[in-house]
Amino acid sequence: MYYFRNIYRAVRTVAAGLKVTLPYHFARTVVVQYPDVEPTLQPRYRGFHTYQIERCIACEACAKACPVGAIRVAKSGPRKIDKARDLAVGGAITQYQIDYTTCLFCGLCTEVCPTECLKMGSIHDNSCYRREELVTDFIRLAKQGRRTIEPLWLTKPNLPAWAARVRDFWRNRDRDRREWMARADDPEYCAALAKQAAPPKEGVS
Protein backbone atom coordinates (compact mmCIF):
# COMPACT_ATOMS: atom_id res chain seq x y z
CA MET A 1 0.00 0.00 0.00
CA TYR A 2 2.84 2.35 0.93
CA TYR A 3 4.45 1.45 -2.38
CA PHE A 4 1.57 2.84 -4.46
CA ARG A 5 1.21 5.86 -2.21
CA ASN A 6 4.88 6.66 -2.73
CA ILE A 7 4.46 6.41 -6.50
CA TYR A 8 1.45 8.70 -6.36
CA ARG A 9 3.36 11.21 -4.22
CA ALA A 10 6.38 11.15 -6.52
CA VAL A 11 4.27 11.76 -9.61
CA ARG A 12 2.30 14.51 -7.90
CA THR A 13 5.35 16.38 -6.61
CA VAL A 14 7.15 16.14 -9.95
CA ALA A 15 4.04 17.47 -11.68
CA ALA A 16 3.81 20.32 -9.20
CA GLY A 17 7.42 21.20 -9.90
CA LEU A 18 6.98 20.97 -13.65
CA LYS A 19 3.98 23.29 -13.50
CA VAL A 20 6.48 26.08 -12.88
CA THR A 21 9.17 25.06 -15.34
CA LEU A 22 7.24 23.40 -18.14
CA PRO A 23 5.76 26.62 -19.63
CA TYR A 24 9.34 27.74 -20.33
CA HIS A 25 9.67 24.75 -22.60
CA PHE A 26 6.96 26.12 -24.84
CA ALA A 27 7.87 29.79 -24.50
CA ARG A 28 9.69 31.60 -27.27
CA THR A 29 13.47 31.40 -27.04
CA VAL A 30 15.00 34.79 -26.41
CA VAL A 31 18.68 35.27 -27.13
CA VAL A 32 20.17 38.51 -25.87
CA GLN A 33 22.22 39.70 -28.83
CA TYR A 34 24.56 41.30 -26.37
CA PRO A 35 27.02 43.60 -28.12
CA ASP A 36 24.25 44.87 -30.40
CA VAL A 37 21.53 45.39 -27.80
CA GLU A 38 21.75 46.82 -24.34
CA PRO A 39 21.92 44.37 -21.42
CA THR A 40 18.78 44.46 -19.30
CA LEU A 41 20.10 45.69 -15.97
CA GLN A 42 17.77 45.99 -13.02
CA PRO A 43 17.31 49.49 -11.59
CA ARG A 44 19.20 48.59 -8.41
CA TYR A 45 21.97 46.71 -10.19
CA ARG A 46 25.32 47.08 -8.44
CA GLY A 47 27.88 47.83 -11.11
CA PHE A 48 31.12 49.78 -10.98
CA HIS A 49 30.96 52.73 -8.58
CA THR A 50 30.17 56.31 -9.42
CA TYR A 51 32.03 58.75 -7.23
CA GLN A 52 31.42 62.48 -6.80
CA ILE A 53 34.77 63.62 -5.53
CA GLU A 54 33.80 67.24 -4.85
CA ARG A 55 31.08 66.13 -2.43
CA CYS A 56 33.23 63.53 -0.64
CA ILE A 57 34.33 64.44 2.89
CA ALA A 58 36.88 61.57 2.97
CA CYS A 59 35.48 60.24 6.24
CA GLU A 60 36.85 56.78 5.38
CA ALA A 61 33.55 55.15 6.33
CA CYS A 62 33.58 53.28 3.03
CA ALA A 63 37.11 52.05 3.61
CA LYS A 64 36.16 50.79 7.06
CA ALA A 65 32.97 49.14 5.81
CA CYS A 66 34.67 47.34 2.96
CA PRO A 67 34.90 43.64 3.88
CA VAL A 68 37.97 43.07 1.71
CA GLY A 69 39.76 46.39 2.26
CA ALA A 70 39.58 47.36 -1.38
CA ILE A 71 39.14 51.11 -0.78
CA ARG A 72 42.06 53.38 0.15
CA VAL A 73 41.33 56.97 1.15
CA ALA A 74 43.69 59.73 2.29
CA LYS A 75 43.15 63.44 2.90
CA SER A 76 45.27 66.39 3.87
CA GLY A 77 42.81 67.87 6.38
CA PRO A 78 39.23 67.71 7.61
CA ARG A 79 36.60 68.35 4.97
CA LYS A 80 33.06 69.44 5.56
CA ILE A 81 30.00 69.97 3.45
CA ASP A 82 29.06 73.46 2.27
CA LYS A 83 25.35 73.05 1.81
CA ALA A 84 24.85 76.14 -0.30
CA ARG A 85 26.99 74.88 -3.14
CA ASP A 86 26.60 71.15 -2.39
CA LEU A 87 30.35 70.91 -2.07
CA ALA A 88 32.91 69.59 0.40
CA VAL A 89 35.51 72.18 1.44
CA GLY A 90 38.54 72.29 3.73
CA GLY A 91 41.31 69.74 3.23
CA ALA A 92 42.09 67.99 0.00
CA ILE A 93 41.57 64.36 -0.95
CA THR A 94 45.03 63.06 -1.77
CA GLN A 95 44.10 59.46 -2.51
CA TYR A 96 40.95 57.65 -3.46
CA GLN A 97 41.45 54.20 -4.92
CA ILE A 98 39.13 51.27 -5.35
CA ASP A 99 40.83 47.98 -6.05
CA TYR A 100 38.50 46.19 -8.46
CA THR A 101 40.61 43.06 -8.33
CA THR A 102 39.13 42.28 -4.91
CA CYS A 103 35.89 44.33 -4.91
CA LEU A 104 32.82 42.19 -4.26
CA PHE A 105 30.21 44.74 -5.42
CA CYS A 106 28.34 44.17 -2.14
CA GLY A 107 27.34 47.82 -1.80
CA LEU A 108 28.29 48.17 1.88
CA CYS A 109 30.49 51.17 1.08
CA THR A 110 27.57 53.03 -0.47
CA GLU A 111 25.24 52.29 2.43
CA VAL A 112 27.51 53.90 5.01
CA CYS A 113 28.39 56.93 2.88
CA PRO A 114 27.04 59.98 4.81
CA THR A 115 27.03 62.36 1.83
CA GLU A 116 25.96 59.73 -0.71
CA CYS A 117 28.77 60.70 -3.00
CA LEU A 118 29.71 57.06 -3.60
CA LYS A 119 27.06 55.04 -5.39
CA MET A 120 26.88 51.80 -7.24
CA GLY A 121 26.80 52.60 -10.94
CA SER A 122 25.45 50.81 -13.96
CA ILE A 123 28.63 49.96 -15.87
CA HIS A 124 28.69 46.19 -15.87
CA ASP A 125 32.09 45.29 -17.22
CA ASN A 126 35.72 46.34 -17.02
CA SER A 127 37.61 43.47 -18.61
CA CYS A 128 41.20 44.35 -19.39
CA TYR A 129 44.59 42.87 -20.20
CA ARG A 130 46.61 43.82 -17.14
CA ARG A 131 45.79 43.39 -13.47
CA GLU A 132 47.15 46.83 -12.57
CA GLU A 133 44.51 48.50 -14.74
CA LEU A 134 41.84 47.27 -12.35
CA VAL A 135 43.18 49.31 -9.43
CA THR A 136 41.16 52.43 -10.16
CA ASP A 137 42.38 55.84 -9.08
CA PHE A 138 39.29 58.03 -8.90
CA ILE A 139 41.30 61.23 -8.52
CA ARG A 140 42.86 60.61 -11.92
CA LEU A 141 39.38 59.95 -13.31
CA ALA A 142 38.05 63.17 -11.76
CA LYS A 143 40.83 65.13 -13.43
CA GLN A 144 39.53 63.77 -16.71
CA GLY A 145 36.05 64.90 -15.67
CA ARG A 146 34.66 61.41 -15.07
CA ARG A 147 32.37 60.11 -12.37
CA THR A 148 33.00 56.45 -13.08
CA ILE A 149 35.43 54.21 -14.90
CA GLU A 150 35.70 54.21 -18.66
CA PRO A 151 36.24 50.53 -19.44
CA LEU A 152 38.04 49.23 -22.48
CA TRP A 153 34.88 48.28 -24.31
CA LEU A 154 33.61 51.88 -24.22
CA THR A 155 36.76 53.19 -25.87
CA LYS A 156 36.43 50.99 -28.97
CA PRO A 157 35.53 52.55 -32.34
CA ASN A 158 32.25 51.63 -34.06
CA LEU A 159 30.30 51.17 -30.85
CA PRO A 160 26.65 50.15 -31.08
CA ALA A 161 24.20 52.98 -30.48
CA TRP A 162 23.37 52.10 -26.89
CA ALA A 163 27.04 51.86 -25.89
CA ALA A 164 27.82 55.19 -27.56
CA ARG A 165 24.95 56.66 -25.58
CA VAL A 166 26.38 55.27 -22.32
CA ARG A 167 29.82 56.59 -23.21
CA ASP A 168 28.57 60.07 -24.06
CA PHE A 169 26.38 60.17 -20.97
CA TRP A 170 29.35 59.62 -18.67
CA ARG A 171 31.66 61.87 -20.71
CA ASN A 172 29.26 64.80 -20.67
CA ARG A 173 28.09 64.42 -17.09
CA ASP A 174 28.35 67.43 -14.74
CA ARG A 175 30.28 69.74 -17.03
CA ASP A 176 29.62 72.69 -14.70
CA ARG A 177 31.35 70.92 -11.80
CA ARG A 178 34.50 69.92 -13.69
CA GLU A 179 36.66 72.58 -12.03
CA TRP A 180 35.80 71.39 -8.52
CA MET A 181 36.30 67.76 -9.50
CA ALA A 182 39.67 68.35 -11.11
CA ARG A 183 41.12 70.32 -8.20
CA ALA A 184 39.76 68.31 -5.25
CA ASP A 185 43.30 67.07 -4.51
CA ASP A 186 44.74 70.60 -4.37
CA PRO A 187 44.97 71.70 -0.70
CA GLU A 188 45.26 75.42 -1.47
CA TYR A 189 42.26 75.36 -3.76
CA CYS A 190 40.14 73.50 -1.21
CA ALA A 191 41.18 75.88 1.58
CA ALA A 192 40.29 78.84 -0.62
CA LEU A 193 36.89 77.27 -1.24
CA ALA A 194 36.39 77.04 2.52
CA LYS A 195 37.02 80.77 2.91
CA GLN A 196 34.53 81.58 0.19
CA ALA A 197 32.18 79.14 1.77
CA ALA A 198 31.39 81.32 4.79
CA PRO A 199 29.01 83.97 3.57
CA PRO A 200 28.17 86.34 6.47
CA LYS A 201 24.90 85.29 8.00
CA GLU A 202 22.40 87.94 8.90
CA GLY A 203 22.79 89.17 12.42
CA VAL A 204 26.31 87.84 12.73
CA SER A 205 29.08 90.17 11.72
Partner: peptide, 9 residues
Protein backbone atom coordinates in the same frame (compact mmCIF):
# COMPACT_ATOMS: atom_id res chain seq x y z
CA UNK B 1 42.20 38.79 -19.96
CA UNK B 2 40.95 39.78 -16.51
CA UNK B 3 37.18 40.01 -16.04
CA UNK B 4 36.41 41.64 -12.66
CA UNK B 5 33.15 41.16 -10.81
CA UNK B 6 31.79 38.99 -8.06
CA UNK B 7 30.62 37.23 -10.14
CA UNK B 8 30.79 39.06 -13.49
CA UNK B 9 27.61 39.24 -15.52
Amino acid sequence: VYVPGCPPR
